[in-house]
């Protein structure tokens, strides 16, 4: 079974994504801020890491830097969620090392589709 880390500070959204993924038999760890996410990343290797852009403690971008700098266990695919829709933001996120990008608001089904596509690719 595929293991996913979800770092999203928005409780309702986190609940929705976790429910959606667990219905599809993914194993999901959830983090409510950057620190929690980092703690998980140091303990576990994930097939996919979903990061929110704006989070307390560490932002999504800061977490990517830490992953790239080898502060965590191994390398996983990274999907960034962001409300910032401007093209340059998206570019910045991808340049920083995110593999995929999804703009908020998204349809939950689209997100699921995307996630399945990503993990099946791997």
């Amino acid at each position: 079974m595929k293991r996913i880390l979800l770092a999203e500070d928005e409780a309702v959204l986190r609940m929705l994504i976790v429910d959606t993924l667990e219905d599809e038999d993914f194993i999901v760890d959830e983090a409510a801020d950057g620190q929690e996410a980092l703690d998980y990343l140091k303990l576990e290797k994930y097939d996919l890491v979903i990061l929110d852009y704006m989070m307390p403690v560490y932002t999504g971008l800061e977490l990517i830097e830490k992953i790239k700098a080898g502060e965590t266990l191994g390398h996983s695919k990274i999907l960034m969620l962001s409300a910032k829709s401007q093209a340059y933001e998206q570019e910045r996120i991808l340049l920083a090392g995110a593999d995929y990008f999804m703009e908020k608001p998204f349809s939950p089904l689209k997100l699921l589709e995307k996630i399945e596509e990503i993990v099946n690719e791997a």
Binding site: E10, M54, K104
Partner: peptide, 17 residues
């Protein structure tokens, strides 16, 4: 407001967003 905006659209509360 930012967190409402980020969540509302996805769960189809477009008016709130």
């Amino acid at each position: 407001l930012h967190s409402i905006k980020g969540t509302a659209g996805t769960i189809q509360l477009g008016g709130l967003m």
